[in-house]
């Protein structure tokens, strides 16, 4: 294992200390328990937007704390859900009296820990609504699985729900907007190499030189199938096909396209991917109205990419374009 770390056990804490030192105007970091809040929290009368999950997906979620997006993020250990006390304290720290939205990726651990946190803060009279994100079409959604995983749509939901909260909308409306994003977004990814968890020290899985894992998650958990390595254009078709099938997009629909790097894939390659995705969507008669290309929800040092499509309407467009000032997403 070759990593820029001091000791594997200190990675998460030291990264948080670095984040605090790098962005003092945007956010504050609490270490015991670990959570990140925007510098001006809590804001009276504003709905708080809180997310969280295992570390190792940076910039998700800590890099999205700031005006116009998340009020707080709760980072767990690498690939491990945060604990209930972290989420409960972060929720209390951003509660401005208008309630708090929890944006939770659909993993058993995340759901359970956020659920317990909600029970804890309910005792203090803090109203919480949770929206669970489950956009990964690689996982069959049935009674026989934990349901679809939350992946790329999480970034879009955090931005758009964050904008709705910033406008001063009530909790029920902020939650409704978040659910709309989840309902209209689908994702799928592939891995070219495994990631290596710092505390484990060796790759989570083995992939041959000529192999790729199709339908990969963001924790190094295996995907839908293993396949012979293909060229970029063909890979884009393998990802876009299931997404479009499931999304039910029709000619003339407007979409936001996210091409996301898994951590170790250069932007050069991501634009090769975006090139084919863009032409493919146009061939389908879809209008790409917004696009995002880069590493936004990663899996440590995994090489690979994911594609997320979100069907847009006027409202979502306006909220997407609203100003945002976070370490990883900033405009307006």
């Amino acid at each position: 294992m070759k990593k820029l770390i001091n000791h594997p056990d200190d990675v998460v804490r030291e990264a948080l200390e670095g984040l605090a030192a790098a962005h003092p105007d945007t956010l504050r970091v609490n270490l015991k328990p670990a959570y990140v809040v925007r510098a001006d929290a809590p804001l009276a009368g504003k709905v708080g937007v809180v997310s969280g999950g295992g570390s190792g997906h940076e910039p998700l979620h800590t890099g999205y704390v700031g005006k116009g997006m998340l009020d707080a993020a709760c980072p767990g250990q690498v690939f491990t859900s945060p604990t209930p006390d972290q989420v409960a304290e972060a929720t209390a720290a951003v509660n401005g009296g208008a309630g708090v939205l929890h944006i939770v990726k659909n993993y058993t651990g995340d759901v359970l820990n956020f659920e317990m946190a909600t029970e804890i803060v309910a005792e203090d009279g803090i109203e919480v609504t949770a929206v669970v994100i489950d956009d990964d079409v690689a996982v069959t959604d049935s009674l026989y699985t934990a349901g679809r995983r939350g992946v790329g749509a999480t970034v879009l939901a955090e931005k758009i729900a964050g904008a709705a909260a910033e406008e001063g909308r009530p909790l029920a409306q902020v939650a409704a907007v978040c659910r709309t994003v989840n309902a209209n977004a689908r994702s799928m990814g592939i891995a070219l190499t495994s990631c290596t968890v710092p505390q484990v020290g060796h790759p989570t899985f083995d992939l041959g030189e000529d192999e790729m894992e199709v339908g990969i998650g963001i924790h190094g958990e295996p995907g839908r199938s293993r396949s012979v390595l293909r060229q970029a254009d063909e890979i884009v078709e393998m990802l876009a096909g299931p997404i479009l099938d499931d999304l039910g997009a029709e000619t003339g629909d407007q979409v936001l396209a996210l091409v996301n790097g898994m951590g170790a894939t250069p932007l050069l390659e991501l634009y090769v991917v975006y090139r084919r995705l863009h032409s493919l969507l146009e061939e389908q008669g879809l209008r790409v109205v917004r696009r995002l290309v880069g590493s936004y929800i990663t899996s440590l040092d995994m090489a690979g990419c994911s594609v997320t499509l979100l069907k847009m309407d006027k409202e979502l467009l306006r909220l997407w374009d609203a100003p945002v000032f976070t370490p990883a997403l900033s405009w307006g």
Partner: peptide, 12 residues
């Protein structure tokens, strides 16, 4: 255990 394990195992 609740405040240190995390994951699904922590709450369970």
């Amino acid at each position: 255990l609740l405040s240190t394990i995390g994951g699904a195992s922590g709450p369970l």
